[in-house]
Simulated assay, not measured.
Amino acid sequence: MESLKAIQQKQKVVFILGATGTGKSKLSIDLATRVPAEIVNSDKIQVLKGLDILTNKVTEEEKRGIPHHLLGVLDPEADLTVSDFCVLACCAIEAILEKDRLPIIVGGSNRYVEALVDDEKVGFRSKYECCFIWLDVATQVHHSYVAKRVDEMVSSGLIDEVRDVFKPDADYTKGIRQSIGVPEMDKYLRLESEVNEETRKELLKEAIDEIKDNTCKLIHRQLEKIHRLQNRPGWNIRRIDATEVFLKGGKEALVLWEKIVLEPSTKIVEHFLYGNTGCDDAPARYY
């Protein structure tokens, strides 16, 4: 494959946008197996160490050897500001480009991504050309999937994981305890040793239902932000509809993922990198 540096006139960066639970991490890893790339996490909670189940961090096996930056690297008590993120992300991007690889920025913290790209103090657009891919899923299908994912997290050890970071006097507005799933478990963890089994079950169900509800509210806010960005100059966001994948299961879902998500996304990225024009001029039939 021809060197990226040899064909790029301006340094290029790909962004994978989307609400939580749409498959952004999987798409970024799949793309990074097709073009020489490394991944930069832009989820403000996943930058922090800990709560790997609750925050749905990709595992070493899921990474498939693709280097990930800003994933579980800061102290759980750290309060990562937008400015902090921009500095860290720019350093990671430069390090990736120095290795002649494509930076793929992926995560659900759209406010952080917006600041990185558009803040004049950062000067991002003066250095880089951007390609934005939005992985989307129909609302009801998405909410149903997220509810099932929360149940799977509970089965995988979410309760014990949250118990390990629980503090009666914790500040739920800072650090890792901001994560959806920690404040919601507060009442259950405070009372679990003081009430009978039936009440414990009721408290736990209430906590889990609240986690699901607050996750759906987060999804709504994330989508509102993406829609706002979509209408701004310079944010030509390419939408990939993954709904059909989420409606299926097993091998059929894998086939559909390849057909309606990965192949169109690969074409977008390849056109962005190797075409004569930018991402904005990629063939419209794919999006």
Rank of each mutant, 00 (worst) to 15 (best):
S3N: 04
A6D: 14
Q9T: 07
Q11V: 05
I16P: 00
I16V: 08
A19F: 02
T20G: 09
G23V: 02
I29Y: 10
D30M: 14
E38H: 06
V40Q: 09
N41W: 01
N41M: 06
S42P: 11
I45Q: 11
V47Q: 15
K49I: 09
G50M: 04
I53S: 05
I53N: 12
T55A: 13
N56P: 05
K63E: 13
G65E: 02
L71C: 07
L71V: 07
G72E: 14
L74M: 10
P76V: 10
D79Y: 02
C86N: 10
E94N: 05
I96R: 09
L97R: 10
E98T: 14
K99H: 15
L102A: 02
G107S: 06
G108S: 08
G108T: 04
N110I: 07
R111C: 01
V113Q: 10
A115T: 14
L116G: 03
D118H: 11
D119W: 14
S126R: 15
C131P: 01
F132C: 11
I133Q: 13
Q140E: 15
H142F: 14
H143D: 10
A147H: 08
R149Q: 05
E152Q: 15
G157V: 00
L158G: 02
E161T: 01
K167Q: 07
K167L: 05
D169T: 07
K174P: 08
G175M: 01
I176G: 04
P183N: 06
E184G: 02
E192N: 07
E197Y: 00
E202A: 10
L203K: 08
K205R: 14
I208G: 05
E210D: 03
T215Q: 09
L218H: 13
L223D: 07
L229A: 06
W235R: 10
N236V: 12
N236D: 15
I237C: 10
I237D: 12
I240D: 01
D241Y: 09
A253C: 05
T266D: 06
K267L: 11
K267R: 14
E270Q: 07
Y274H: 12
N276Q: 11
A282Q: 12
R285G: 02
